[in-house]
């Protein structure tokens, strides 16, 4: 099982490259597909949140409830996804001995569904 922080591999791979590229290569090589999926999800949520926040500041916050709903759905989903990532990451297994990845995913899914329920209630 590959670990996310495999320092020796990163160093050997990126010794002749720029630090950012080597960081990226280390991440790409040593992160499991599942965590990558979560990370892609997180990036998407962050960008979506940033766009909404900029729109709120620069254009209008007029249906403020819609802004709150849209922004909160991004932030909430981000928090839930981040928690999921923390819990299913094999590197953190010591800290979450009680929580199996399945249980973590079930909690994440339930939390997300509740979150979306509130978001759509608040949106219109």
């Amino acid at each position: 099982m590959p670990a996310t922080k495999n320092a020796p591999t990163a160093k050997t791979a990126g010794s002749s490259q720029s630090p950012i590229l080597s960081l990226w290569n280390a991440y790409y090589d040593n992160t499991s597909t599942r965590l990558k999926t979560i990370d892609a999800f997180l990036v998407f949520l962050m960008l979506s949140g940033i766009i909404q926040f900029l729109y709120c500041i620069l254009v209008t916050n007029f249906p403020f409830n819609a802004f709150l709903a849209g922004f909160a759905s991004c932030v909430g989903q981000f928090v839930l996804a981040a928690s999921l990532r923390a819990q299913v990451n094999p590197a953190n297994r010591k800290e979450f001995k009680e929580v199996s990845p399945e249980r973590a995913f079930a909690e994440f899914a339930l939390g997300s569904i509740v979150l979306h329920f509130f978001v759509y209630n608040f949106l219109g």
Binding site: S48, F62, G70, S73, C74
Partner: peptide, 12 residues
Amino acid sequence: AAWPYYAGAFST
């Protein structure tokens, strides 16, 4: 005016 917010929620 709120289309970005709706799009944000739906895309999430």
